[in-house]
Design a binder for these strands. Structure first.
Lengths: 147, 147
DNA sequence: ATGGGTGCAAAGGTTTTGCACTCCG
DNA sequence: CGGAGTGCAAAACCTTTGCACCCAT
């Protein structure tokens, strides 16, 4: 049951961590709710907001993205472009099990669902004592069109 | 048999791609050969070279790292610090099967050998048609000391 | 009311680029 | 020799920070 992230969840987590529910934070989260499955950079978010006439300082966008990622609401990722991108997660841990496939020709990013990592993470805990909380998997290759 | 990267391999791959074997490129590769298993940033490499009295322009270090990664001699990676790091690979594809575990408290990067990904990559090719050439797996969590 | 949050502009850090010069093939 | 590669400094980016002002709690 992939339960979606909502404004209420934002409110809850902010309160739990003694942060304030500001208009800016709601607006930033809303961008991601309206763009599910997209990997947005700070500049992307800033641009989308400007287009909607909702003007927020770029620094605040950066600060909000950081905070939302810290709260586990957004997931931060990098695709080797020299900047970070963010994506909304869901409440269910199962949903973390999606991996990115990056086409080395056209640059498109595809996704793939899988739960093979659980096994591997348990194995790592047993053999190394390293307790895994999250993971990121990136595959590089050529998509159907570009091969 | 994890066959190590050597100067000869650099020479071969440069020739095959119509690039020149310059002193600077040899020196940069040498840094990695002398620092196996380390994840060096451009600035790290630049610093090591300065310490050895082998002065190379920083821009050239960047250009060499790019090229060596393109030739498959180095592997480029990011750990969310806002800069790229590089590591020498080996000739054997089996050696690509090591993953990074990043401690969220002390920031140390650990490694783990595993070949579970093969299965997953075959599965992805069959179901999506995406042909995988390389992958990068990062685990975030807490190391033995920091738990 | 008060301390965290915001906006702006400036600063910081990494990476890229333009151009004259060098040197590998 | 000729063109790819280098060095240097400037520029381009992305991100962070300092500080005065604002507004959720």
């Amino acid at each position: 049951m992939p339960e979606k992230i909502t404004m209420d969840i934002l409110k809850q987590r902010l309160q739990k961590n003694k942060h304030k529910l500001t208009m800016q934070r709601r607006i930033v989260l809303n961008v991601f709710i309206e763009h599910p499955g997209e990997h947005l950079s700070a500049e992307d978010v800033y641009g989308i907001l400007r287009d909607h006439g909702q003007d927020i300082g770029l620094a605040t966008v950066y600060r909000s993205l950081d905070l939302l990622a810290e709260l586990g609401i957004l997931q931060k990722m990098e695709f080797g472009e020299g900047k970070s991108r963010y994506e909304v997660g869901t409440m269910s841990p199962d949903e973390h099990q999606h991996h990115h496939m990056i086409c080395m020709k056209c640059g498109k990013v595809f996704e793939f669902q899988d739960d093979l990592m659980d096994k591997l993470e348990k194995h790592i805990l047993q053999t190394t004592g390293f307790k895994i909380v999250d993971h990121q998997v990136k595959f590089y290759g050529y998509c159907k069109e570009c091969q």
